[in-house]
Design a protein around this nucleic acid. Structure first.
Lengths: 205, 205
DNA sequence: GTCTATACAGGGATAGAC
DNA sequence: GTCTATCCCTGTATAGAC
């Protein structure tokens, strides 16, 4: 299995000069392996093997294993915040809540590995990195909490405690990733619809 | 720090003969460390140090590290099933659903470490052990799904997909462990009540 | 029942050749 | 830019003394 077997022509080159794509491939391999086996259980040698390079070569792209994990998590959460910012949301708390629920499910089903890591590997972050990631997560939670607070203030929703409801709803929505399988019994759209109905009812709307 | 400093009298004894309690203490230390740092990140030496014995002594109580993890998870899930079986449940699907929601929160808040491990360390189980644990988890999920199916059949609840709703509700309820802190802003009873209201509404009751 | 000592494999990370 | 080779540490698990 050689990623360059379809390389054009027979130009002279040193053994493996993939610099343009090796970085992303390392990140992809790490993402996959961390999600499957856990950060602590995956060795740098395994990651290198998956990419098709030697272990030492990894250190051209990351200073150490911890930074590799941190970059994956930060990248995921930054993507999440940016995608939500770009999402069309409609008018009013109810429309925004539906947009959030559907967006959250769609985004998370598209990136099961990154989601898994972002929720499971927090304890393997060094304190400084942990604080940084937590701030990003908090920013995302605040997006939902603002919707719930607006909804409660305008009388459209009944939410006795917006902070608790925020965490409860995110836990419920994120949970979809633990069981949903592509091509399974339920279509994505049907899953989105059912979850949205449960969310809507849960906040008394 | 010597666990036996309050030992009565001055009876002759070899250096450390704690056999009656060392087994449980090993399990407790492993539970705590696995929950805090993750199974793969914790060494047998660390566990031994926490108990106050040498690493080699652990192997008098467990054949290996994997079995230690498996026993912790199996013990937790067996306790869960047994406790639910012994729980007073009232009459009818609605009363049973409330009993389940409150029981689930209470049980899980009482054992944060065990809950964390049972949900996070599944991927570190060898296939045979994994299957065994999954069967226990499935049995617990079936308890809730039966309630939802009865509730839907009797027209008391509106649940378009009982399997999906089961997983969504359990995810939501279990999520309480990720943020609840003893002595925090909300009492346990208030948390139980708020979650129960969300569950009740989510199933359209 | 616990200790010390150790076997042996594998970990993260670095140096220097090409 | 990647390779090979290696350093040094830590991991699990076992053997044999006490």
């Amino acid at each position: 299995m050689n990623a360059c077997s379809d390389m054009p022509g027979n130009m002279a080159r040193k053994t493996g000069s993939h610099s343009e794509i090796t970085g992303p491939r390392i990140r992809a391999a790490a993402l996959h392996l961390f999600a499957r086996h856990g950060y602590a259980a995956v060795s740098m040698r395994q990651i290198a093997a998956e990419v098709g390079v030697q272990a030492g070569a990894l250190y051209l792209y990351t200073p150490d294993k911890q930074t590799l994990l941190f970059d994956l998590m930060r990248g995921h959460l930054e993507d999440l915040l940016q995608a939500w910012a770009a999402e069309p949301k409609g008018e009013g708390p109810l429309a925004r809540l539906e947009a959030f629920a559907r967006f959250h499910i769609r985004f998370h089903l598209d990136r099961p590995d990154a989601v898994f890591i972002a929720y499971m590997e927090l304890r393997n972050l060094e304190p400084e990195n942990f604080a940084s990631i937590e701030a990003l997560r908090k920013a995302y939670e605040d997006e939902l909490e603002t919707i719930l607070r607006d909804g409660a203030a305008s009388g459209l929703m009944r939410v006795p405690d917006t902070k608790l409801a925020t965490l409860a709803l995110i836990a419920m929505l994120t949970g979809v990733g633990t069981w949903y399988r592509e091509g399974g019994r339920l279509s994505r759209d049907r899953v989105e619809r059912i979850y949205w109905n449960m969310v809507r009812r849960a906040v008394g709307a």
